[in-house]
Every structure is written in C-alpha cells, then in structure tokens.
Amino acid sequence: MHMFAGKRILIVEDEYFLADETRRRLDQFGATVIGPAAHVEEALALIKQVEIDAAILDVHLGDQFVFPVAEELDRLDIPFVFATGYDPAFIPKKFTGFAFCEKPAELENIALALFGKDAPKKLQ
C-alpha cells in the first residue's frame, strides 16, 4: 500500500460511509485525500483547484453519472479507476480501456491499477 504514500487522490463518491472509509484508509497509507466529492460539479471544481495524482470514481452519483469527471481527468492525463457495483457493460465504450474495480473496492487492487509498475493508465 506504499504506492499511495505522498499521492494526492481525489475520491468521487456520494455514499458518505464508503467515502469516509476510503478517506480514512488512504490517510493511513500516507495519501493526501482530495474530497470526497459527492457531485460532478464539486469534483470538476476540485480538479481545477487542486493538483491531483489520481482519482477513484463511483459511477453513479445520486441522479448523475461521473463520466464528465472521467472525461476531464482523461483530458488532463490523470489516471483514475471506476469503483462501482454496476456491471462493466454499463460503462461507455470510450472508457472500456480504463481500470474498473467492483465495490466494495479493495485499495490494494486500486493501487496496482493506478500506480503499479506494469499498469498503464489505459488497460489493454
């Protein structure tokens, strides 16, 4: 879990308890947590205001989907993973090469997807 040490990680999650648990665990691993953001607009504002190394995105945020955030992160070349309980077929085709972790997500798998030596931002 040392891969998170010193990294600035954006959490985009609308379920308070999941977001708080992820935040606490990332803090324990030496990451600086950005957010959590519960809405697309809030996440986009954080991306503009704060330097981010990577992001963990829940796909469904209340009545919104996180895809505008994913598009902005991709445009800025910031790695991210989708952490969701949805079927991967639900993710738009343009994001099919990105890492996907099922909820509840294991931070070890997320760390490897984001920062592992052989894990590119877009998976083949």
Rank of each mutant, 00 (worst) to 15 (best):
I56D: 05
E71I: 08
R24D: 15
K94T: 14
T96Y: 08
L61F: 05
P120D: 09
N109T: 12
D118T: 10
A113G: 06
K121M: 15
D87S: 14
E71L: 07
R24G: 13
G116K: 02
T32V: 04
A89P: 03
A43I: 08
Q124H: 09
E51K: 12
I11S: 00
L10F: 03
A111C: 06
R24E: 15
A55I: 09
Q64V: 03
D118F: 08
V59F: 11
I9G: 04
T96V: 07
T22S: 04
I56Y: 05
F100N: 10
D14A: 01
I78M: 08
V50W: 10
L107A: 12
I110M: 15
F98E: 13
E21R: 01
L61I: 04
I47K: 00
F29L: 13
F90Y: 13
C101H: 14
A38T: 09
L61N: 05
D14T: 00
L107V: 12
E71F: 02
A5N: 08
G97A: 11
F17T: 04
A43K: 09
K93Q: 14
L123R: 15
F100D: 08
I110A: 14
Q64W: 01
K48N: 04
I110F: 07
R25M: 12
V69E: 10
E13F: 05
V59Q: 07
A113V: 09
T32K: 01
K93A: 15
L46Q: 05
L18W: 00
F67I: 06
K121E: 08
Q49G: 10
I110L: 15
G62H: 04
F67E: 14
A37Q: 05
P68S: 14
A83S: 14
K7E: 06
M1A: 06
G6R: 03
F67W: 13
I34T: 01
K93C: 11
L112W: 10
R8H: 12
D27Q: 10
L61H: 04
V12L: 01
L107E: 10
A55F: 10
A111L: 10
A5T: 06
E41D: 10
A105L: 14
L18K: 01
D53C: 11
A38G: 08
L73G: 06
I11H: 00
A31T: 00
P68V: 14
V33L: 03
E71N: 07
T22H: 09
A31G: 00
K121S: 13
P79W: 14
D27P: 00
F115N: 08
V50F: 12
I56G: 03
C101I: 14
L10R: 00
E106L: 07
L46T: 04
I52D: 10
Q124W: 07
A54G: 13
L123M: 11
E102C: 11
G35Y: 01
D58R: 09
E21I: 06
T96S: 13
P92F: 15
G62K: 02
T84Y: 08
F90L: 13
A89D: 12
E21W: 04
A99T: 04
F115R: 03
V33K: 00
T22M: 13
